[in-house]
Design a protein around this nucleic acid. Structure first.
Lengths: 234, 234
DNA sequence: TCACATTTGTCCGTATGTATC
DNA sequence: AGATACATACGGACAAATGTG
C-alpha cells in the first residue's frame, strides 16, 4: 500500500522548515556564500517563533548546509561542509560500533586498489601536480624531523579525487577521517614507518605517471603491509 | 602550534550538552532502549533552560542516537538508527552534488566485486539462509506480478553483512539507499529486467554456496549489465 | 468513553554575550 | 571606544499529543 498524498503539514514545524530550506538549497536558490536573514526575520517570514527557527537551524547546521555567526552582519551563512559532516558521522559510527582498525584497513585497501584502476586511466595533469606537491611537502617535513602524517592521509584523498568518481571521494574521505582519528589516539609516532610510507607514496605516484597499473597495485600491497604495522601498534 | 588546554566551556551550551551525552552513549552508560528523563528534568540537572536542552536534543536526534515521543511516558528514548541517518546523509549529498547514476553504478559494482572475495570466504549458514529467504520472497513477488525491487536491494545489503566487515556494511547500505532513491523517482518499472535481476541473484547465491569465486564474479558482471540498463532508463 | 496527568511543541518577552562598524 | 545587530540563553505560559484510570 503506497501513500498518495503528503500530509498538509508535517508534525513538527521545525522539521517542515528545515526540509523546505534544504530543498531550496538543492534547487540552487540558496548557494554557498549566500547569507540568510537573521533568525527573527526568518521567524517572521514563516510566521513562527524564533525558538522554532533555532531548532531548524540546528538541523541545517548539523547537515553541513549552514554556519552561524554572531554579531553585526552575522546570521546564518550557506556553506558546503557536508563532506566534513559525513566524516564526523563515520567517526561516530566507528566509536559507537567499536570497529577494529584491522577491519578498516582491510576494506580501505580493497577499495583503494579497485579505485586505482580509474586513477591510472583518468588522472590528469592537475591531479598529478597536486600529488607531486603532496609528496614534496611530506619529504620536507621528514627532513625537518616532523611527522608527515597529515600529508600521508591527504595523499589518499587526492588519489580519490583523481578517480573522477564522487562515490570514491566520499567513501575514501570518510574512511581516512576514521584513520586519522585512530592515529590521533595513538601515543607514539613511528618516524621510520612514516618515512617508508611517504617513500611508497612517491613510488606509487611515479607508477601512476607511467600509467603502470601492475606496478602501482604491487606497490599498494607493500604499502598495506606498512600501514598494517602502524595500525597494529595502537 | 597545537593547543594544550580545552576551553573551560565550549562556546555554546547545547553543543557541550550534546557532546557530553554522546560520549555517555559511546561509553555505554546509556544503551538503546533506555529512556532519558524529560526535557525539564534534564534542564534542571544541567542547570540550563529547557530551550537549550531542546537544541541539544535536535542534534542527538539527527545523529540517530535518540527518538522523542510526546505524551505520558514519552520523552527521549535512546535508539540506534545511525545507519539510517548515514543513508539519508548520502542521499542528501547525492542530491546536492548531482551525482550521476552511472557514477554510482560504477563504484558500487567495483566495491561489491572486491567485497565478494570476503563473502565467499566468510558467509556462514545464517547468511546463506537469509539470502535464500530473500530470493524466495523476490520470486514470490514476481509470481504475484508485483515488483521485487525492495528484495533486490536488500539482497546486496545481506551480501555486505556476509562479508563480516562493518565498513562494507556501512558503505553498501548507504549506496543502496541512493540507488533506491533513484529508483523511487523513476516512473516506469521494467518487470522483465527485475525478473532477470532476481534470477542473477539466485545464481550468485548458488555460486556463493559452492564457494566458487570465479563464477560469482562473472555473474556479477552480467548483473551489472542489467542494472546499467535499468539505471540508464532514468 | 471520558477525564486527567505527563511530556513535547510552540509562543512571547526579556536579558546577556559577541562581533562588526 | 561606543553603538548596533545579531545569536545565545532564560522563564513562564499555553496548546497538542498520548498513555492511564
Amino acid at each position: 500500500m503506497t501513500t498518495y498524498f503528503e500530509p498538509y503539514k508535517s508534525k513538527r514545524s521545525f522539521d517542515e522548515i528545515s526540509n523546505q530550506m534544504k530543498s531550496l538549497i538543492f534547487q540552487g536558490v540558496f548557494k554557498p556564500g549566500d547569507k540568510l536573514p537573521p533568525e527573527s526575520e526568518i521567524a517572521n517570514q514563516f510566521n513562527v517563533s524564533r525558538q522554532t527557527i533555532r531548532e531548524a537551524m540546528r538541523i541545517l547546521e548539523h547537515c553541513g548546509f549552514i554556519t552561524i555567526q554572531q554579531g553585526v552582519n552575522g546570521g546564518p551563512l550557506i556553506v558546503d561542509t557536508i563532506l566534513n559532516r559525513l566524516a564526523t558521522f563515520f567517526i561516530d559510527i566507528f566509536h559507537f560500533k567499536k570497529i577494529s582498525p584491522e577491519e578498516v584497513t582491510e576494506a580501505r585497501f580493497d577499495i583503494e586498489k579497485v579505485m586505482l584502476h580509474h586513477v591510472i586511466e583518468r588522472a590528469d595533469d592537475s591531479d598529478i601536480e597536486q600529488l607531486k606537491e603532496n609528496v614534496m611537502r611530506a619529504k620536507e617535513k621528514i627532513k625537518a624531523n616532523t611527522s608527515p602524517f597529515a600529508e600521508n592521509i591527504a595523499f589518499h584523498k587526492l588519489l580519490a579525487r583523481a578517480s573522477k568518481n564522487y562515490i570514491y571521494i566520499i567513501v575514501i574521505e570518510s574512511i581516512m577521517a576514521v584513520v586519522a582519528d585512530f592515529r590521533s589516539e595513538m601515543k607514539n609516532v613511528d618516524f621510520k614507518r612514516s618515512r617508508k610510507i611517504t617513500q611508497y607514496h612517491e613510488d606509487i605516484l611515479e607508477s601512476i605517471m607511467e600509467r603502470n597499473l601492475e606496478r602501482s597495485i604491487s606497490l599498494f600491497e607493500k604499502l598495506l603491509g606498512e600501514v598494517q604495522a602502524v595500525m597494529a601498534a595502537t
